[in-house]
Amino acid sequence: MIKFFSNSNIFFWIEKLTNFINSIFFIVLLVAISFALILSPPDYLQGDSVRIMYVHVPAAWIGLASFFCIALLSLVNFIFKIKNFNLISKSIAPIGLVFTCLAIITGSLWGQPTWGTFWVWDARITSMLILAIFYIIFILSYKLISDQKKADKISSFVAIIGSINLPIIKYSVDWWNTLHQPASIKILGASSIHSSMLVPLFLMFFVLILYCALIFLMKYKTEIIRIKKKNLKRL
């Protein structure tokens, strides 16, 4: 009974939040795009191709963060069997896959003019590709396995094992020689990106986060309705 009420409460908040994000989304998008493409300066070395970073870096962050969330939720779910958590990770996974792929695509579009190649098998790029593969396995494991409980178990397991890849991606540029440059923005310490370029970077990140929230809310709503529909049949 408690669960029932919480679900309908969530449903109510999803509506409110979606409306709020919809109302501010296009303004923020316009501001971020104009900063990223017009108002920010070119780089001293890369020229205007630095602007690709404004989609590449947020996309990569979202790709990593999504998998981190999924792994964390799967871990808790695997131990305590909380049903809602599975719905959440199920809703996040496609978002993470899309942004990981976008990070790889925009990365190779940046690599061609700066490095002189679309693709190299260095540690950072390869581990990013492995992340995309883990996303695909995760999504397939609940698409292909019809038994709900079994699918939950296997997909959580995939997420937990896949999370070992996350520190490898993060530190690949420090542990090994890679063509990919080391991190510019550090959690501790000063970033090596000039502030006039940090503004569009964080604005674009904010826009994409809002976008992800919209998608997530829609996906989560779909999952709730799917369950309700199943319950209806049982009556």
């Binding site: 020229g47 792929c101 925009t106 940046w110 919209l214």
Partner: peptide, 26 residues
Amino acid sequence: MGNYGFFVWSSFFTTLLVCAIFYIRT
């Protein structure tokens, strides 16, 4: 874009397109 036009615009356009399609499908 200082001769980087193709790369800059195609990366922004791809991102926008993929996001739009993903939104519509969801």
